[in-house]
């Protein structure tokens, strides 16, 4: 007979992440959809906005975050749909673990997918538009912005996955809630790209940090209620 115990929070979280990454690297459904989509968005922007060098500088952050946001919802939806379609979400919820551990597991894998997309988009964008994006400050903003976007997104995706119209519902709910993240991420990114004063960059950066903390805390508290009928 097996010896069982309640797995620790961190073990449960890691089990979820490992499961998600194993499944994704096998099927590559989610990543390929996100990558193709991002590529299309950048290309369309490239053709639509025939920009001169100066204008490019000013739209770069906006184009990047639009791409991340749309590709992000695609990934968030998929990653929850995988749980719902064979009833796996119930399987997760039946495990004797703190449900917040399941939530954080999903957040970490979603974040991992998001980072992979970003690591793919940045060099391509840099090559297409001939701008240098490898600024440590920008990478920090992308890190913070992605965390904020994914923490809210994962929570909302676990709500909307119940609905038949989840593909439309998630962006409709997520974009308004994520506006503070997107706005401050765009602001801070533009600041870093234009070499602005830190005094100008701090306010949006602070907002990002505060948002990340608040939403992590909120999700931690409400996830249980969201997933139970």
């Amino acid at each position: 007979m097996p010896t069982t115990s309640h797995p620790s929070f961190i073990h449960a979280t890691l089990a979820v992440v490992r499961k998600d990454l194993t499944a994704e690297f096998r099927s590559r459904e989610l990543l390929s959809a996100m990558l193709v989509f991002s590529l299309l968005v950048i290309l369309i922007f490239n053709f639509a906005l025939e920009l001169n060098v100066k204008e490019r500088q000013s739209v770069t952050a906006g184009v990047l975050w639009t791409t991340f946001a749309f590709a992000g919802t695609l990934g968030l939806n998929r990653s929850m749909a995988v749980e719902k379609d064979r009833g796996c979400l119930d399987g997760l919820l039946l495990a004797p673990v703190d449900r917040a551990a399941i939530y954080f597991g999903k957040v970490i894998s979603n974040l991992a997918f998001m980072f992979m997309v970003e690591a793919f988009v940045l060099p391509i964008y840099a090559a297409l538009y001939n701008v240098n994006l490898f600024h440590p400050g920008l990478l920090l903003v992308i890190l913070l912005g992605s965390i904020g976007y994914t923490t809210v997104g994962t929570l909302l995706a676990s709500m909307t996955v119940q609905a038949r119209t989840r593909d439309v519902l998630l962006p409709i709910l997520l974009f308004p809630v994520a506006i503070p993240v997107l706005l401050s991420a765009v602001k801070a990114s533009t600041g870093f790209l234009n070499g602005a004063d830190m005094a100008e960059i701090w306010p949006p950066l602070n907002l990002l940090i505060v948002y990340d903390l608040i939403f992590t805390a909120v999700a931690f508290m409400v996830f249980d209620n969201v997933v139970e009928e």
Binding site: T3, P7, H11, K19, R26, D90
Partner: peptide, 30 residues
């Protein structure tokens, strides 16, 4: 619990599915 739905992941093998649940239930020597 056994329900209408299998609660298994399509992109994982039988072994991997059980390993995942074993971890979620804290089973040692699984």
């Amino acid at each position: 619990v056994v329900s209408h739905m299998p609660l298994l992941y399509g992109d994982l093998t039988a072994q991997e599915n059980l390993e995942f649940y074993a971890r979620m239930y804290g089973i040692t020597n699984y």
